[in-house]
């Protein structure tokens, strides 16, 4: 499964990275790594706006978001 690693980036960059991956490949499922709460919230909103369900899991100081159609 494709993983977008947006750690080290602050908003709006993580949404832009996920948007690029979704627009280009229209994946059924996608994993996103981010390292701040603002990006968790924004990527969640983006995922839902594109019809994905979004699960968030904390991984140490990072977060893994699982987007599924």
């Amino acid at each position: 499964m494709k993983t977008v690693d947006a750690r080290g980036h602050s908003c709006p960059i993580p949404v832009v990275m996920v948007r690029k991956a979704v627009t280009a490949e229209k994946p059924e499922a996608l994993e996103v790594l981010v390292d701040n709460q603002c990006s968790v919230e924004n990527v969640t909103r983006y995922g839902k706006s594109q019809g994905y369900s979004v699960d968030v899991a904390a991984e140490g100081a990072d977060f893994r978001l699982s987007l599924k159609k």
């Binding site: 908003c11 603002c38 919230e41 924004n42 969640t44």
Partner: peptide
């Protein structure tokens, strides 16, 4: 806003 382009 719906697409999560919201400022910190």
């Amino acid at each position: 806003a719906k697409e999560g382009l919201l400022p910190e």
